[in-house]
Amino acid sequence: MNAIRLACLSLCVLAAPATAQDTAQARPAWALAIHGGAGVIERQDLSPEQDAAYRASLQRALDAGAAVLEAGGSALDAVEAAVRLMEDDPLFNAGRGAVFTAAGRNELDAAVMDGRTRNAGAVAGLTRTRHPIAAARAVMEQSPHVMLIGEGAETFAAARGLEQVDPAFFFTESRWRALERTLRDRSEPLPERPAGVPAPGAMAALHQAPLDERKFGTVGAVALDRSGRLAAGTSTGGMTAKRWGRVGDVPVIGAGTYASNADGCAVSATGSGEYFIRATVARDICHRTGGGASVQAAADSEIADVGSIGGDGGVIVMGTDGTFAFAMNTPGMYRGAVSSARPAAVAIYADEDLRP
């Protein structure tokens, strides 16, 4: 790993009981951790208003998932609730606010996994389904398949009654400007502005992401419910100006998303997708915890490994005891955590500590 990645590596242990008795007393009935993407996110890049907006959005997602878990709902329901809110938030590169392909389209990917059964569902290349995370769950629960892509995935989602929207719903001005800059830098032609979108400058300035955040945009959640079930879910708009139907790690089970009660682990990743696929990041973390590593040690080791082959990004990890961990080799990752044993806390920059 190069010096920059070593300097940026952030490992946050969120539960450190001193004794076995303390462990039993502190073990939460439920727990939830979320992320909104990792990358070059530094204090000087965000205005105070933007910083506050991101924190408020993370808090809303935590509140949504926590309400499900506190009421006795499943880990899958909590993960979906948290991710759906972030998919609707233009601050994040998922759902509304997704980045554009080189052709000027928003193409959306998502995945979910049930840790107890190891059932999984994934979708890629959606353009009209409002909540890709719901489509991924429908694939898992209402089809014999694990992954559906493109037009077929869209047809399936519509047939299952999932909300469909005009593609203009996903448009944000900041993502369009990012596409224009990227294509100009490549000396590639600019696509026409999509039909039915707001006029330039019409969208609220507060909802414009940093112009050069170089963020690996993804949102995700991992949860433990009162019945001891783990679940993971991840959703993304992919990579700015991607071509040729590129798909990253998010919908690849074992790369960007994985959950296994047997291994004591649920993972949602965000980063340079090609590297996370090559390193099978999410599955490897669970393999490490299954072998006895703590969730933090497993996350630490895996991010070091993916960094050694050139990958950047981060992970959130949940254990069957409600211990959760964050690891990254970037200057920041939008993230938060809450459990029945501790209040919600959110963070953006790598040097922020989420321990209570």
Rank of each mutant, 00 (worst) to 15 (best):
D351E: 15
T257G: 02
I285M: 09
P356A: 14
G36W: 09
S272M: 12
S268E: 07
D22Y: 02
T218H: 11
A157P: 00
I149N: 14
S174C: 14
R96E: 04
A134I: 00
F156M: 00
R288M: 14
S301D: 12
P28G: 03
F171L: 08
M140E: 01
M318D: 01
L14M: 15
L126F: 01
E80F: 07
D321A: 11
M140F: 02
R184C: 04
V222P: 00
G313T: 07
Q21K: 15
G256D: 11
Q59E: 13
A82E: 13
S187K: 15
G196D: 00
R184Y: 01
E70S: 15
A158D: 00
L91C: 11
E163Q: 10
P28S: 07
R160W: 00
R243T: 07
A29L: 14
A66D: 14
V68T: 14
A124C: 12
E80N: 13
A327T: 11
A304H: 11
L6D: 13
G273I: 09
M140Y: 03
L46W: 09
L354Y: 05
G161N: 04
A158E: 02
D321P: 06
G332N: 01
P331G: 08
F276D: 05
A262E: 15
S294E: 05
Y334P: 08
R5S: 14
H145K: 08
T289E: 10
G196Y: 01
D166H: 09
A344Q: 09
G273A: 13
A232P: 01
G248V: 04
A199L: 10
R214D: 08
V338E: 00
S294F: 06
A53P: 04
R27D: 02
G248P: 04
G322R: 08
I41F: 06
V139N: 01
R118E: 15
T182H: 12
F276T: 12
F326T: 10
G73Q: 12
G37V: 08
A158T: 00
I285P: 06
R160I: 00
N119Y: 07
P90Y: 06
A111T: 05
G238F: 06
M1G: 06
R43P: 02
A327Y: 06
E151C: 05
L69S: 11
S308I: 01
E274Q: 12
A297N: 14
G37L: 08
C265R: 09
F324D: 10
S268K: 03
R186T: 01
R229S: 14
R118F: 05
P191K: 06
A269R: 03
G115F: 09
D212K: 03
R278H: 11
D300P: 07
A29N: 10
E87Y: 12
V139S: 02
G217C: 04
A159E: 11
R335C: 02
E151G: 05
